[in-house]
């Protein structure tokens, strides 16, 4: 116990709270590693949230809901891909537009579903492990998505670090002209990375509407997409640090609720803004360290590629 807050419950609930931002940030990390800055994470998340809920309600299956959410997130990211990779639109402006579009569209789709509850997603009971004292409730009392989101981080880390596909992806994000000169398909690699980012953001959104809340209200993701973007920078584009960042920021949001419940006298707003303050601090620290090359950012991040050279 810590000032009226149970630590075991706190850790268990921060793991749950971190899933949406962890998933979205993992997807965005891959897109940014390929040199694409997609600021539409929030929009893709909320589209995933509403489509996942609608699909789960109609099919009665949460798994189908998540699948639909991934498809919807990817579909919305395809709009971004078309604009930035084919028509070479500015990535920042397109990403912002995507977020606004996603928020509006989700409201429209969700009109008949406000307050509707989706079928519940079961928890994974692991015989033996779940009953352990302390560790059981913290680590082994979650739904499958908590574990899948961690597994995705491991997969992404391994692919980026150890496989040829990961090497090509990093090369494209580092110097698209060189990658093109060596014969790699810059646009195709980026397209796939954007789609992956969209699908992951969609899954993250669906976790909010299907598990965490679980029901539909307008603006349900409440800025989680922006936190996901901040986490990628905070993590200096390293997958395992994304996990740390997501749990840190997830922890802050849980703590904020718990502190309120415990009647602490810190204004909630301070905690609500703390993830961003931390990100700004990290950015400052990164750029203060010269030779750190702008904190490991992919050199071609946000730059459009045109092959006719």
């Amino acid at each position: 116990m810590l000032g009226g807050i149970n630590l075991a419950t706190l850790i268990a609930s921060l793991m749950v709270a971190a899933v949406p931002i962890l998933m979205a940030a993992t997807g965005e990390l891959v897109a940014e590693k390929a040199g694409v800055l997609n600021l539409g994470v929030e929009g893709m998340m909320i589209i995933g949230a509403v489509c996942g809920l609608v699909a789960a309600v109609h099919s009665g299956s949460p798994a189908l809901g998540f699948l639909a959410a991934a498809a919807a997130g990817a579909a919305l990211s395809l709009v971004f891909a078309l604009l930035t990779q084919v028509f070479l639109a500015n990535q920042v402006a397109t990403g912002l537009a995507l977020t606004l579009f996603g928020l509006g569209l989700s409201s429209l789709i969700g009109q008949g579903y406000v307050g509707v509850k989706p079928p519940p997603t079961g928890r994974l009971e692991i015989p033996g492990l779940s009953d352990m004292p302390v560790l059981g409730p913290i680590l082994f009392h979650h739904d499958v998505w908590v574990y899948l989101s961690i597994a995705m981080v491991a997969v992404v880390a391994a692919v980026l670090r150890r496989t040829r596909a990961g090497l090509i992806l990093r090369a494209v994000g580092e110097n698209h002209d060189a990658a093109h000169a060596l014969g790699y398909k810059v646009t195709r690699v980026r397209l796939l990375a954007i789609l992956f980012g969209g699908a992951m953001a969609g899954l993250g959104g669906a976790y909010v509407s299907l598990v965490r809340v679980p029901q539909w209200t307008d603006g349900i993701t409440a800025g989680a997409g922006w936190i996901a973007l901040a986490i990628v920078v905070f993590a200096s584009w390293k997958p395992w640090r994304v996990l740390i960042g997501a749990y840190l920021f997830g922890g802050i949001s849980v703590l904020q609720l718990n502190l309120q419940a415990a009647g602490a006298r810190i204004p909630v707003e301070y905690l609500a803004m703390s993830p961003y303050v931390v990100t700004i601090l990290v950015l400052v620290l990164i750029s203060a360290e010269r030779g750190g090359r702008g904190g490991n950012a992919p050199a071609a991040l946000g730059r459009n590629f045109h092959a006719a050279r």
Binding site: L167, R170, A171, N175, D177, A178, A179, H180, A181, R293
Partner: peptide
Amino acid sequence: FQHFSLFDAL
């Protein structure tokens, strides 16, 4: 190549 073919961060 004359330019454009190496990756600084790799």
